[in-house]
Lab assay of single mutants.
Amino acid sequence: AQVHVDGVTYDFDNPEEAEKFAREMAKRKGGTVEVKNDQWHVE
């Protein structure tokens, strides 16, 4: 699973880890999390 944050792509073998990371980053940035094509996007 991939997580996109500020133009940087992070690869995770485990989708749950990807989701956890995406939500944590969004919380830190005060942003939102979107899922597109099985990829997490932190805005």
Rank of each mutant, 00 (worst) to 15 (best):
A26W: 02
W40K: 04
V42D: 03
D38K: 11
V3Y: 01
K20P: 00
Q39S: 11
Q39R: 09
D38E: 10
G31R: 06
E24V: 05
R23C: 14
V8E: 07
E43Y: 15
H4G: 02
W40I: 08
Q39A: 12
A18N: 00
H4A: 05
E17V: 04
E19N: 02
W40V: 05
F12R: 00
E34W: 15
Y10G: 00
N14W: 05
R28L: 14
F12H: 00
V8R: 12
D13E: 12
V42A: 03
G31N: 04
H41D: 04
T9K: 07
R23Q: 08
Y10I: 04
N37V: 07
H41C: 15
H4L: 13
E17P: 00
R28K: 13
A26H: 03
F21H: 01
E19P: 00
E43W: 14
Q2D: 02
K20V: 08
A22C: 13
V33E: 03
V5L: 09
E19K: 04
D6A: 07
V3Q: 01
R23W: 12
P15S: 11
A1V: 13
T9F: 06
E24L: 11
D13Y: 05
D6N: 11
K36G: 06
D11K: 14
A18V: 01
V8C: 15
E24M: 12
D13A: 11
K29F: 15
E16Q: 10
D13N: 11
E19G: 03
V3N: 01
Q2I: 09
K20M: 10
D38C: 15
V8D: 04
E34F: 15
F12P: 00
V42L: 04
K36A: 08
A1G: 08
A26K: 02
R28T: 09
E43L: 15
E43D: 10
R23I: 09
H4M: 12
E43F: 15
E43H: 14
N37C: 15
V5H: 06
K36D: 08
K29G: 08
V35G: 10
Y10T: 01
V8Y: 11
E24H: 06
D13G: 07
D11Y: 15
V42N: 04
H4I: 14
E43M: 15
F21Y: 05
Q2Y: 09
M25I: 10
K36Q: 11
N14R: 07
A1I: 13
V8N: 07
Q39G: 15
V3D: 01
G7T: 02
M25G: 00
E19M: 08
T9R: 11
H4T: 13
A18Y: 02
P15A: 13
H41M: 09
E19L: 09
A1T: 14
R23P: 00
T32W: 15
V8Q: 10
V8F: 11
D38G: 15
K27D: 09
R23V: 07
F21Q: 01
T32K: 12
R28D: 06
F21P: 00
M25T: 06
D38Y: 10
V42R: 05
H4W: 13
V8L: 10
A26M: 05
R28E: 11
K20Y: 08
R23L: 09
E24S: 07
N14T: 14
K20L: 10
E19Q: 05
A1E: 03
K20F: 08
W40S: 03
R23G: 02
Y10D: 00
V3L: 02
E17S: 07
H41E: 06
D38V: 04
E34S: 15
D11M: 14
R28S: 11
A1L: 14
Q2N: 04
Q2F: 08
E16H: 10
G7Q: 03
E43P: 07
E16A: 12
F12N: 00
A1N: 13
G7W: 03
K20N: 10
H41R: 11
V5W: 07
N37M: 09
W40H: 05
Y10V: 02
N37I: 07
V33R: 03
E24W: 11
D11R: 14
T9Q: 08
R28M: 13
V5M: 13
E24Y: 11
V33G: 03
D13K: 10
M25W: 08
W40L: 08
G30F: 07
T32A: 07
E43V: 15
T32Y: 14
D13I: 10
W40P: 05
V5Q: 01
W40F: 13
Q2A: 08
T9L: 08
E16M: 10
P15T: 09
A26F: 02
V42M: 04
E24F: 08
E16S: 11
D11V: 14
V5F: 11
D6I: 02
R28V: 11
E24I: 07
T9M: 08
T32M: 09
A26N: 03
E43Q: 14
D6L: 06
H41S: 08
Q39D: 06
A1P: 12
M25E: 08
T32G: 06
Y10M: 02
M25L: 11
K36R: 14
K36V: 13
P15W: 13
Y10R: 01
G31T: 10
F12T: 01
E34K: 14
N14G: 07
V3W: 02
G31Y: 14
V42P: 04
D6G: 10
N37Y: 09
K20D: 08
V35N: 10
W40E: 04
A18R: 02
E43S: 14
G30Y: 07
E43K: 14
K27Y: 12
Q39L: 08
F21R: 01
Y10P: 00
G30K: 07
F21S: 00
F21V: 01
M25Y: 08
G30Q: 07
D13T: 09
T9W: 12
G31V: 11
E19D: 07
E17G: 02
Q2P: 02
E17C: 15
G30A: 06
A1H: 14
G7R: 02
E16P: 01
E17K: 05
F12W: 01
H41Q: 07
T9A: 06
Q39P: 05
